[in-house]
Computed example of a mutant assay.
Amino acid sequence: MDTRKQAQNPHHCRICLVRHGETLWNAERRLQGHLDVPLNEVGLVQAEATARSLAEHRFAAIYASDLTRALQTAAPTARACRLEARPTPALRERHYGAFQGLTYAEAADRYPDAYHRFKAREPEFSFPGGGESLLVFAARIGSVLTDLAGRHRGEQILVVTHGGVLDIAHRLASRLPLEAPRDFPILNAALNWLDYDGEDWHLLAWAEQHHLESARDELPNA
């Protein structure tokens, strides 16, 4: 899909969604949530590769989660496109409560009942320690993406965010229920393209990784 040449419908917004580059905690399969973990060396290389891949695309704006790993991923593309990445707290990852900072194995060992409900994708389950339910998280992400698309009708924007956010975005476009197991990849620094027509989301392309030597998908429900 050549988004550089494809004209925009004046009522539509096209969004390129990018999961942040790799972090040490991704490699360790450790839940990050709202904890502020920077990119590792692989992630920094991925961010530069993403910038080279997107340098010739025309973006009206760049938005990023305000967590360091997303801002670091957005920074090279923002420089290449001569734009400023706008920190947007509503684009943060799901809040995992007491699971944050634990590996998936540690979370399963310490909170077996809660982990079972997490793996089962129960929409109303909230993590112990103040975490978000899928229903609350999905409402937050649906609202911020729809708001950004409404601001940029007839334009194309870049959104740099987190794996859980991409999960919700794909489900919005594919109509896959929150509780259904994930059947699509969510790769660090890959390109994912959606279109919003003012009423519905449409999936244009997903998990483009031609610019990457490798990309990790360590998330559950893969």
Rank of each mutant, 00 (worst) to 15 (best):
residue 128 P to Q: 09
residue 152 H to L: 03
residue 98 A to C: 11
residue 116 H to F: 10
residue 114 A to P: 04
residue 60 A to C: 13
residue 212 L to C: 07
residue 65 S to I: 04
residue 50 T to M: 13
residue 94 R to V: 03
residue 86 R to Q: 13
residue 18 V to F: 09
residue 97 G to T: 06
residue 196 Y to R: 07
residue 134 L to N: 01
residue 180 A to K: 08
residue 11 H to F: 12
residue 125 F to T: 14
residue 69 R to A: 03
residue 68 T to N: 06
residue 183 D to T: 07
residue 220 P to T: 14
residue 154 G to L: 01
residue 199 E to Q: 15
residue 54 L to A: 06
residue 170 H to W: 05
residue 159 V to P: 01
residue 146 T to M: 10
residue 89 P to G: 08
residue 139 A to P: 00
residue 185 P to N: 04
residue 85 A to T: 02
residue 25 W to D: 02
residue 183 D to Y: 03
residue 41 E to V: 12
residue 19 R to T: 03
residue 141 I to M: 07
residue 7 A to N: 11
residue 148 L to S: 04
residue 68 T to R: 09
residue 31 L to W: 08
residue 195 D to W: 10
residue 175 R to I: 08
residue 175 R to H: 12
residue 18 V to N: 08
residue 48 E to W: 01
residue 53 S to F: 12
residue 33 G to K: 02
residue 105 A to W: 00
residue 143 S to Y: 11
residue 16 C to P: 00
residue 72 Q to D: 00
residue 179 E to R: 07
residue 191 L to T: 13
residue 90 A to Q: 14
residue 137 F to D: 04
residue 146 T to H: 00
residue 197 D to F: 10
residue 187 L to G: 00
residue 53 S to Y: 15
residue 16 C to S: 11
residue 187 L to W: 03
residue 30 R to Y: 05
residue 100 Q to K: 11
residue 198 G to F: 03
residue 31 L to M: 14
residue 8 Q to L: 15
residue 30 R to Q: 08
residue 74 A to T: 03
residue 189 A to G: 06
residue 64 A to C: 06
residue 9 N to W: 07
residue 30 R to S: 04
residue 143 S to R: 14
residue 122 E to F: 09
residue 196 Y to T: 09
residue 20 H to L: 13
residue 186 I to S: 00
residue 211 H to R: 02
residue 147 D to K: 12
residue 113 D to Q: 14
residue 169 A to V: 05
residue 131 G to E: 06
residue 75 A to N: 06
residue 51 A to C: 09
residue 11 H to V: 12
residue 55 A to R: 14
residue 116 H to R: 15
residue 168 I to Q: 06
residue 166 L to S: 12
residue 144 V to K: 02
residue 123 P to C: 11
residue 93 E to D: 10
residue 191 L to R: 09
residue 124 E to K: 11
residue 39 L to M: 02
residue 169 A to Q: 01
residue 148 L to R: 03
residue 168 I to R: 05
